[in-house]
């Protein structure tokens, strides 16, 4: 039983680490056009990094028919856009101060973030 309990505790620790404590390796600041593919339950890439105080456009390409993928929301920027299936939708970002801006679908099944540096 000891081993089973230990395995369970390790499993819990892994869940906490993997989903909450894990820090991504640094990603490059994106240059040029940014395109995010909405497919198979995720945004690809789900984390993008852009420069502060630069107007940028992100193209969302929805290739996932599930209704969950339909709405894109960037709550802090008050952006909420419907993504038509198999089409590319341009989201224009204003000049942003440094910080992290989460984006997700209506039910938060799809999650991503924009790091502004």
């Amino acid at each position: 039983m000891l081993w089973i309990n230990l395995t369970g505790i390790v499993l819990i620790a892994l869940i906490i680490w993997w989903f909450w404590l894990y820090k991504e390796q640094s990603i490059r600041i994106a240059e040029g056009s940014l395109e995010i593919l909405v497919k198979d339950g995720i945004y690809q890439p789900s984390h993008i990094k852009i420069r502060a105080n630069e107007e940028r456009q992100i193209v969302f390409h929805r290739a996932d028919a599930t209704p969950c993928a339909e709405m894109l929301s960037i709550p802090e920027l008050d952006i909420s856009e419907r993504l038509p299936l198999n089409k590319k939708t341009v989201i224009s970002l204003p000049r942003l101060p440094a910080g992290e801006y989460a984006f997700h679908c209506q039910m938060q099944m799809y999650k991503g973030k924009i790091t502004v540096q």
Partner: peptide
Amino acid sequence: HFYVGAWNSFKNHSANM
């Protein structure tokens, strides 16, 4: 679609339905 979505989310350190 559940398994592919789950695996992709897992790789992204996120979890969903």
